[in-house]
Amino acid sequence: MDRVPVLKLGDVLLVSIQVDLADKTTVQLEEDLSERIVATGARGVIIDISALDIVDSFVGRMLATIAAISRVLDAETVVVGMRPAVAITLVELGLSLHGIQTALNVERALEVLSRARDDDWIPPLDTEDDTAPAAP
């Protein structure tokens, strides 16, 4: 059975689907990704589907599930590179992939993820300020 490779880039996992997905491969990817998110402590997942010439409801559901799982594991999922014909077909099929973030390409997806992290950013607690007396 084919297995889709999962690459780690810093705290982001990158999955580039290059084969016509059989259903078992799709399910396998779901499992692999959940494990890798926990094992690597990844904060973001990018799924590149630019090589897929169709996305049917099975693959659509996989994308939604991965997004939901990664959210539970505190990671953000971005689906990138959907082809126009695929997008038009998905709309017609009635699949709007609610709750899934999308980006045009991997570069944009990295921007989206880093923005999400900026929002999380908390200024370091400046303990000195608290303790130092307001010296005249």
Binding site: V78, V79, V80, M82, R83, P84, A87, I88, L90, V91, E92, S96, L97, Q101, T102, A103, L104, N105, R108, A109
Partner: peptide, 12 residues
């Protein structure tokens, strides 16, 4: 409307 939704799916 479909165009708008499709664009969203593509990340735009």
């Amino acid at each position: 409307l479909k165009t708008v939704v499709a664009a969203r799916l593509m990340g735009a």
